[in-house]
Design a binder for these strands. Structure first.
Lengths: 349, 349
DNA sequence: CTACCGATGTTAAGCGCTTAGATTCTCAGC
DNA sequence: GCTGAGAATCTAAGCGCTTAACATCGGTAG
């Protein structure tokens, strides 16, 4: 590549100072029309591409926001392999985070913001989230994707939205649904409509959202005078852990219902049950949480709580922008509505 | 926000020069272990987040690559609206570009690269692709998303992969499938298996890929001794144009088959046919191209050409990285395999 | 004719980091 | 104790852009 042309090259060619070149782009009204045209012509002719690094350094802001996500650790699908049919393909994509990311993207587009994507796979030792944070004016992170301490450190400098996180201090915000109440509603459905007496729960407590789901489940059963079986540790995206959790559940004897903390886990459960000749809802009721595409494509379709994923993403961007614009009243925490979606996995027709 | 701490702050606190701070992060082996620890401790204590702008400016590279995509112009889905069922929801997401983007993302993650997303919605007047280009070390763009001239300008400075584009000059690369042959194969299927005599084509010629598809279709019909009806202009994502194209087709009389340049258009065609009391494949055969999720969820499932979308994205990143590493032999153009997928919309069982 | 003004440009001082090259330390070898 | 070679660290010159502050140039009002 040839050396990148800079403002100096453009200025020289146009016969003006570099300040004028800069003003031509940033505040055209301060430059006489003909001068402006000359500068633009010069810029075109040398192929001027302004350096965002230099601009960011000089201005103190980059004009981009960052999204820090999990590291999926997916092995690449093998080329030449026949494409999966949709019920399978959608197990991998789009998942919860993909739908949220889409909302972030759409909102960034609408606002003319560039979006920087990062995740945990950086080869170096320093926390990768710091790396992303250094590039942007505001950061959105999925709870659990970055160490809370790193996030708090970042929040001291730029506004941070931790999706599904707790607000712990200045500069931190969160967007989520009422996980506890949503899970409670789902559980009440199982109790009052389907009359379950025993229910197992699969999921972990890695983030505040997950904790709230478990608590909503537990609370509801207790309120109904039922005794929840303990929680079996299982993590979305880690099928192994889910299978093991299910095995432990089955070892205790088949409950009336298996409530999972996410759709992803519930889908694994459906598969594993099938592998053992068991079927939902005939042998046991199964439910999920999130409302991902694959949930409705499953057989039977999952009964689940649908999160407004696109809006979670959009709202996060809105909050960031508000915080960056220095609006006084940026909410720390924003709770969006979710909706119970009845499929057939809970025994409804 | 407090003023961001800089290397100077860290250096002062650790009692070293800024150079040492810098080396601590970039070449730790050049710094004595205890000094290093002191610097890291100081960095932690002040909450140091290195500025990527400054680093990028000093180093001459940013460590990020860019993806420049279409501007969907989607209106936000209204919160509180009941979620669409999957056959509908997947009409909006994930589409071709989303699947490709996913490949780009996965490959970037695997390589520890940050990914900058941009699209045409920037409020200012200068070409938005230039803006993205200024932020990254290499750029991937969907053909048709950015003006060819802008892309060529960018390619003079950083490597560019135009997905589905033509290579026009130094620094430009492309990744695509053999669109002409794939479409020909699809068309041959219609001719030889289903014995069609007349076929209409819906699509535009906006990019080299689209042109190749049309040519593959036209050529195959001619080879079979059939006379292609003319091409009706229609664009994916612009349903209005597709509906109008279909109306023009119907005005000429129902052909045996309607071949669409993309799945998105074919799905609109299925809908519109249904609205007129017509049904594929009974009344007319319909085919698509791309292999998006919605294509298999349609009723009837679309017969289509499946592109290796994830791999298109991955390959683009690989090419960029190779070009950035200055490897001698970076292919200008990379043709990936595609596969015919028979659904029921072509009349197969 | 002078003083003043707005419009248009220019000068120059950074922004926070990297990195040649210079300097200082440390310590083995004599 | 002295020397020399690395090792460790520092000095200082940018990287390309923005922008406050200042200069210039008609034109106007008094």
């Amino acid at each position: 590549m040839a050396r990148r042309p800079t403002v100096y090259d453009v200025a020289e060619l146009a016969g003006v100072s570099i300040a004028t070149v800069s003003f031509t782009f940033s505040r055209p009204e301060r430059v006489k029309a003909e001068t402006r045209d000359a500068v633009l012509a010069a810029a075109d002719s040398v192929g001027y591409v302004p350096s965002a690094s230099a601009r960011g350094l000089a201005r103190g802001r980059t004009g981009a926001i960052g999204l820090y996500a999990f590291d999926y650790l997916l092995e690449p699908s093998v080329p030449g392999t026949p494409a999966l049919e949709p019920a399978r393909a959608t197990r991998l994509f789009p998942l919860y985070s993909d739908e949220v990311q889409r909302g972030v993207q759409l909102e960034c587009r609408a606002r003319g913001l560039a979006l920087m994507l990062g995740s945990g796979r950086q080869p170096d030792q320093r926390p990768a989230v710091i790396d992303v944070a250094g590039r942007v004016d505001g950061l959105i992170a999925f709870a659990g994707a970055a160490a809370p301490a790193s996030l708090q450190q970042v929040a001291r400098r730029i506004p941070v939205v931790e999706l599904g996180g707790l607000v712990r201090g200045q500069g931190m915000h969160t967007v989520l649904v009422d996980n506890g109440e949503s899970m409670a509603e789902l559980t009440r459905h199982l109790v009052s409509v389907h009359g379950i007496r025993t229910a197992a729960y699969l999921g972990d407590l890695g983030t505040p959202e997950f904790t709230a789901r478990w608590e909503g489940f537990e609370r509801t059963l207790l309120e109904a005078g039922l005794v929840p079986r303990g929680r079996m540790a299982s993590a979305p995206g880690d099928d192994r852990s889910t299978v093991e959790a299910l095995e432990r559940v089955l070892a205790e004897g088949l409950p009336d219902a298996i409530v999972c903390s996410t759709d992803q886990e519930a889908l694994v459960v459906l598969d594993e049950l099938a592998a053992r000749g068991l079927r939902a809802p005939d042998d046991v009721l199964v439910t999920g949480f999130d409302g991902i595409v694959a949930a409705s494509l499953a057989d039977p379709p999952l009964t689940t709580v649908v999160q407004p994923m696109e809006h979670v993403g959009r709202r996060a961007v809105e909050i960031l922008v508000a915080a960056l614009d220095g609006e006084g009243t940026v909410p720390e925490s924003d709770v969006l509505p979710s909706a119970l979606r009845i499929g057939r996995s809970c025994g409804c027709s």
